[in-house]
């Protein structure tokens, strides 16, 4: 083989490996739909999504995942209420205010926190935060939506802080210098110059944090309580989609309606996180354009 053909051959081989991510993504979609579609045939997509009763083991069983979807959304919303303000202010503090020598110390710590396994957060939420909440709020149990929201908020923080910090730091320094030279204080510069430029980058961070929170499984399985009712308050147990799949797949016989229903939940979950990812991607593209164009 002469070298030109060899190069072409290698190019081809590398291309096949490079599309592996797309192949896997396609594979996930195919498997989810293959195993999940039977439930839609059985009860219909709308009844599946909007049905208010989830009693998969009753006779006859009920497969309505509306309470599960609402639980996931409630818990994710609560997590964002905590994580967005704390995360963005931490990111601002780290990128503009903290002296460089501390920054080199704090950033790796936050990255390391992203690596703490979710079961560890779950264990803490279950055994420490749970009893604490039950005691302080005078509740029969501390394994409630609020607990899950707090733990998920903490877990989403490393993602939000480190991506938002990257975005804030990549705003060209000349912008800041110009504002300071005009007599603005550092705070005014941050609020009126840097943050507006970095908005789309910070948005990316928040969306990715949300994606992480809604897809998180073990922590919510351990701390959310597991009651499959339409959630009415942060102080009641809930059962998000991820926790339902994780808790029930072990009991569901392969090929049973329950098994297909759990894959059906997987489809809905996958679509929701896919939308988050696409939004995050759009936001990050627009940020890149903004920073490079000016």
């Amino acid at each position: 083989m002469n070298w030109r053909n060899k190069e072409k051959f290698i190019h081809g081989i590398l291309f096949i490996f490079a599309i592996s991510s797309i192949i896997f993504l396609t594979g996930i979609v195919i498997v989810l739909f293959k195993e999940g579609l039977p439930i839609f045939h059985r009860i219909g997509l709308l009844d599946f999504i909007l049905g208010k009763e989830w009693y998969p083991t009753y006779d006859p069983p009920d497969f309505g995942i509306y309470p599960l979807i609402m639980s996931s959304l409630l818990v994710t919303f609560g997590a964002m209420v905590i994580a967005v303000p704390v995360g963005i202010s931490s990111a601002i503090f780290i990128s503009y205010i903290l002296p460089a020598k501390y920054k080199n110390f704090v950033k790796p710590i936050i990255e390391m926190l992203a690596g703490v396994p979710s079961v560890i957060y779950g264990l803490f939420g279950m055994k420490v935060l749970g009893p604490f909440l039950a005691d302080k709020l005078n509740l029969p149990t501390g394994l409630i939506a609020l607990n899950a929201a707090i733990m998920l908020g903490i877990m989403a923080l490393p993602t939000i802080v480190s991506i938002a910090e990257d975005a804030l730091s990549s705003v060209p320094r000349s912008f800041r210098d110009a504002s300071l030279a005009l007599g603005g204080t550092m705070w005014e510069t941050i609020m009126k110059v840097n943050l507006p430029i970095a908005t789309s980058g910070v948005t990316t961070a928040v969306i990715l944090g949300m994606g992480r929170a809604i897809g998180e499984t073990m922590t919510v399985l351990m701390v959310a309580g597991g009651a499959s009712m339409v959630p009415k308050s942060f102080l009641l147990p809930v059962r998000p989609m991820t926790a339902t799949i994780a808790a029930e797949m072990g009991e569901a016989a392969i090929g049973s309606p329950h098994y297909h229903a759990l894959f059906g939940i997987g489809i809905i979950l996958f679509i929701i996180t896919l939308m988050f990812n696409i939004l995050a991607d759009v936001a990050s593209q627009s940020f890149k354009k903004k920073v490079s164009a000016r």
Partner: peptide
């Protein structure tokens, strides 16, 4: 593709592996 794969919830990977 890579970014979306990174965002897939871990339990969905579990479903995929099972299937």
């Amino acid at each position: 593709g890579v970014n979306n794969l990174a965002g897939v919830p871990s339990v969905v990977f579990g479903l995929f592996g099972l299937g």
